[in-house]
Every structure is written in structure tokens, then in C-alpha cells.
Design a protein around this nucleic acid. Structure first.
Lengths: 340, 340
DNA sequence: GTGAAAGCGCTAACAC
DNA sequence: GTGTTAGCGCTTTCAC
């Protein structure tokens, strides 16, 4: 199985306990002894067997990040940040997929994998508040995103309602009056969609506009194709919209694409705002105005909070951590710059 | 530490060996006994401790997938497929980042993490053949992508030269004669870029065209911004190109964006072909003609090959597995359909 | 400052 | 078909 503590101990002429102490530094070891052990380790090329260590002390050094999917650049960026931050603390990240499926989210939160991981960061999509409250697993957990509020777990997210209002205010300020929302979910438990829709409604009523349910498009999922299909439906209305606020950037990009296919000019005929600020929107034609949550910050804070719980340095009550966001204005609402 | 085999054994009134056999099914167990054990497991909520199992049999059930980055949708899709396939076989995937950095690729291939993982799938970018040949780690490894050839490891990839020729043949067939290549790498060790460039050159000479090094743009990396910068440089030439073959889709999308900014019509003024067939290219404006490797197949086969090595079912000599590819033609070479 | 030894939970060889 | 037990590599308590 490779080199073990015992091998080193034999080589250095000391006990395994001493080698362990050199490796971990829990107890002082005489300088000369330490040196001999060091040398033996170098010569034999020892590295600790993590399974044995875990079996002993109940830790694996692995945390799980459970997200709906990786194909969505938003989660890819989030995962990226989380993995880097975890690495800084000596933790390894295991990615888990939920497919945005309630059963899988439940499974993950209930401690499927609990034997392998020290803690869990979950980005729930369908999970209900009651599901979280009735969780029995003792594995520390941190929530990210909009899934669930008011539960006894650290929760890292932006203020979705405020962000949506900001997006809408921008559109309203540009004089748009028939603003559609694409990406509502038929499933009432798809929380994030609810919050963004709420912001949409608040902004409308704040501007003295009435809420027209016909302008709210429900989608099955939140991909590019959903956005494209959404715009097609909207443009078939007797009174089509002059702007779209999309649940996320992927949907918005689908809208942009459908606009081209329908021969519409963006933003002249229809302005578009997305949500997430994925890289793709910086190079789309036209470029995409969007809400930019600080994704790296979310990943970092989630990992930091979880590790704080793991090592006991974070003992305060679970916290709702709000991460900053920004409205990034680009061509899909402001128009193209002069070519050249 | 949670429920152990011993707890179940006590509850069911049998030995731990029997419980183990019920759980793992290595040896037959009488139906009645099995039932009692099953019940005890359900009541107490047992799940095996993987660290202990690993300590015993030297397996963790975890394989690592080391890729340059997740932000690139190509790798996100690949990872997605690999993770799903691994799950089917009861394996969990640990994602590792190399940042396309030779040092990190070396570290990974040399068995950093070796204690945690049973095997490794590596997508090398900078690693040299000699690096791979001098590898000492005994952790089974499978290579994916174009990094390195002729090494004693299973290697899953498409035929990059043939794919590049296919892309070029398409452009040549459309009558393009000044075709640029964007995404060559100054570092000669960036293998994939070399192969695609080779295909580019072969196709040119096959068409009786001379190779103009001025039409080959070297980029630092292979992102959207590199593509945009590349096109700007090309269009500043005295004799600008009438087509671009991009090293990958991200670069191609940067090219599409820069074309808009420069006031060029695609494909009328300049046709564009990418490589990878990421989702993004299906919804870009214009949509992107590209080479479509079967990414899911690559992920699946890599995992299957690795697991075959792990469980001993794959004993043949290491193999170069060629995965099919396809040329997908879209608007960036064929032009827009009529709006409506 | 150092060593001996127990035991974490599991599998597999061996005995019955 | 079932039970007993050694031992995987490690940390940690208790002695010295």
C-alpha cells in the first residue's frame, strides 16, 4: 500500500507516535529526532494515508458542493471560486449534481455521501423550507442562492428582489412600459424565480403600471432554448412587449437569438436584461445588460462559512449573508456603439 | 461516529461478517438472516464508512478528473458526462484544476492526491510526452484531449488533424481563399493547437494554396477576448482574410463579436468556423459553424476505460481511442435564413 | 521527549 | 451458511 508511518519509524529508529508527531506537530519533538524523521520521510517518500487518518479522527478534508448543473456557466463560475477557496484551506471539493430535482436535493441534504464529506454547500432549486427544517443529517451545511430562506443554516445570496427592482428600474428609466418577464416557473417552489418575479411586480407597481399576467412567461427550465421559445410566444401577443426582463442570462441569450430570427432590433424594438452576468453575455451580439452578483464572493464566503463551522471557529447563529450585486448596462438596453 | 456494522450485527443477532455479506453480497446469506439484517439496517440507518472500507481494500471509489478550467463550457460538458458515467459505476468524481499550467499538470499526474483517488483522468494542455513517460505514480491514468500522443496510457480524443481538414474543406468549398487561423500558441508544447494548425496547413496545400504565416494569429490563451483581439489584428492587414478558422468556439465567438464591432458582415465579409460545438454557439448571432466532437462520448469512454483498469476488466495494451466528430454548419458560414 | 498499544470500521481468510 | 479474528494506517491516551 505504499509507505506508512511504521516504515518511517523503523527507518528512523523511533516509534510511530513520534513520527506522527513530527508530521502533525501536535507534541514537541526533539530537534535531532525530528531531523532524523524528516530525512526518513524524504528518503522513503511518505505521504499520509487519508483514509486511515479519517477513520481515526472522523474527518475527510472533503466538502461537497451540490449544484443543479455544471453546464450553466453561472454554476461553473461559482464552483470555480469555491474550489479555489477550499484549496486555500486544505480542503478538496466534491461536486454533486442535483439536476434541479427535488428528490436529489433531498438526498444530498439528507446526507447521502455523508461518509465521505465533512460538510456540504447546497444550491437548492426546488427544496422547500420544510424539507430543510426537517433535515436530520448532522453534516454541517451552508446554503447558497435563492432556494430557501429563514432556516437555521448559513445562507449566502444576493438580495434578489432588490436586484430585480434595479433591473426593472433601468428598463423603466429607458421609457419601456410593456415589460415582459421570461422564466417564471410553474412550480411554485422554484423560489428564485418567485423572488425575481416579485421584484418585477414591485417595480411595476412602483412605476404605477399595472401587472399583466400575459407578459409573464413560464418556462420549464432556464436554458437558452426556453428564452427563445418565450420571446416567440410574447411576440405573438396582440400587444407584444417592448422589453424583456429574463430570469437569467441563458434565457436572455435565447431571447436575443429569437429576436434576430424574428427580425427584431435589440434594443430598438425590444430591450433585454438578464441576470447572473455570465461571460457569454459580454460577447453576445448584442452584448447583454444584466445583474451581476459577485459570484466569486458567493463561492468564497460559502466555503469560508462552512469551514468555520467545521473547525469550530464560527460559532455564531446561522446568518443570512448578503453579497453585493451590480447592474451592468450593455448594448441590449443601451444600443450599439457606432461601428468602427 | 454513527452506526457501524457491529451495531447492526448486535441488533440482528448475527456476526459482523454476515452483515458485511448482506451489504456487499460477496457470499450467499440465508434468506431469513438477510431479512433480519436488512431490517436492522433500516431501523438503525446504517451506511458504510467509506474510509474504513478504503483502509481495508485500498480503494476510495473516487476518481479525479483534471481539466484546465471549468469556465470553459467545453470542459464543463466533458465533466458533466464523466460525472454521470462514473456515478453509474458507483464512482464519485473529484474535479481538479490545472489552469493549463504545466507545473500543476505535472503535480496532478505525479500523484498529488494519490491517497484520495483510485484513478485519474487528465486533460493535459502543456504536458510534454517526456513528462508523461517519466511518470512514476502508480495511480491508473487515462488521457483525454490532444495533449500527448504515443504514451503508454489509454487516450481518448478525436482526430484533430482530420477534423481541422474538414473545417477547412468546408470553407474552401464556399470559395474562401484567404483563410486565417486564430488560436495558434507561441508555446510549441501546446499540442492541440499544433494539430489543428497542421490540419489547417494540410488543407491549404491540398487546395493548392500557399501558406501565409501572416494569417496565423497566435494567442496567449483561448478565450473569447483572444478571438476578438485576433480578428482586429487580422483586419488591420493590407490583405485581410475572408474567413477564419478558430482553434475553438470561444475564440470563434470572440471573432464574431469583433466582427460586429468592426462593422463586418458574417459570413459575407468573413466566414467563421469554430471547434468544440459548445451550446453557446447554437444561440450566438450568427450561429456558429463548428466541429462537433462527441464530448459526452469522450467523457463516458474515459471513465469506462479508467474503471476498466481499476477493476482489472481492461487488461489490453493502452489504446488510442478515436471518438467521432462531425462538422455542424450554421450561419457563420452559410448565412442567415430569411427573418420571419 | 518518547514509546506501547488500543481501537476507529471494515473485509477476507480461516474455521466450523 | 455463519462466526471469529487479524490487520489496513493512523491518532491519542497512558506510561515512563
Amino acid at each position: 500500500m505504499g509507505v506508512s508511518l511504521k516504515d518511517i519509524a523503523k527507518r528512523a529508529g523511533v516509534s510511530v507516535a513520534t513520527v506522527s508527531n513530527v508530521v502533525n506537530g501536535y507534541r514537541p519533538v526533539a530537534e535531532a529526532t525530528r531531523e532524523r524523521v524528516r530525512q526518513a520521510i524524504d528518503e522513503l517518500g511518505y505521504s499520509p494515508n487519508l483514509s486511515a487518518r479519517h477513520l481515526r479522527n472522523g474527518r475527510t478534508g472533503i466538502i461537497a458542493l451540490a449544484i443543479p448543473e455544471l453546464n450553466n456557466p453561472y454554476f461553473a463560475e461559482l464552483a470555480d471560486a469555491a474550489i479555489r477557496e477550499a484549496g486555500l484551506h486544505g480542503y478538496t471539493v466534491l461536486l454533486d449534481y442535483t439536476d434541479g430535482d427535488r428528490e436529489k436535493e433531498l438526498l444530498v441534504s439528507q446526507g447521502f455521501r455523508a461518509q465521505v464529506i465533512d460538510g456540504l454547500i447546497l444550491s437548492p432549486v426546488q427544496l422547500r423550507r420544510a424539507d430543510v427544517l426537517s433535515r436530520t443529517s448532522e453534516t454541517p451545511m451552508v446554503l447558497v442562492g435563492e432556494g430557501v430562506y429563514n432556516v437555521p443554516y448559513d445562507h449566502i445570496a444576493i438580495d434578489n428582489v432588490a436586484a430585480s427592482v434595479a433591473a426593472m428600474t433601468h428598463l423603466l428609466g429607458l421609457g419601456r412600459r410593456r415589460i415582459a418577464f421570461v422564466g417564471a416557473q410553474s412550480d411554485v417552489n422554484r423560489q428564485p424565480a418567485q423572488l425575481r418575479l416579485l421584484g418585477y411586480q414591485e417595480a411595476l407597481s412602483g412605476a404605477g403600471l399595472s401587472y399583466d399576467p400575459g407578459l409573464v412567461v413560464t418556462t420549464d427550465y432556464f436554458g437558452r432554448s426556453d428564452g427563445a421559445a418565450g420571446l416567440r410566444r410574447l411576440m405573438a401577443l396582440p400587444e407584444p412587449p417592448d422589453a424583456v426582463f429574463a430570469y437569467n442570462d441563458l434565457i436572455a441569450i435565447g431571447v436575443l437569438r429569437a429576436a434576430v430570427e424574428l427580425g427584431l432590433r435589440v434594443p430598438d424594438d425590444i430591450a433585454v436584461v438578464g441576470f447572473d452576468d455570465i461571460d457569454e453575455g459580454r460577447y453576445s451580439n448584442p452584448t447583454l445588460t444584466t445583474i451581476s452578483p459577485d459570484k466569486a464572493d458567493i463561492g468564497r464566503r460559502a466555503v469560508a462559512a462552512l469551514i468555520g463551522r467545521l473547525d469550530g471557529s464560527r460559532e455564531a447563529e446561522p446568518e443570512e449573508v448578503q453579497v453585493p450585486f451590480e447592474l451592468v448596462t450593455r448594448e441590449s438596453t443601451l444600443g450599439h456603439p457606432e461601428p468602427g
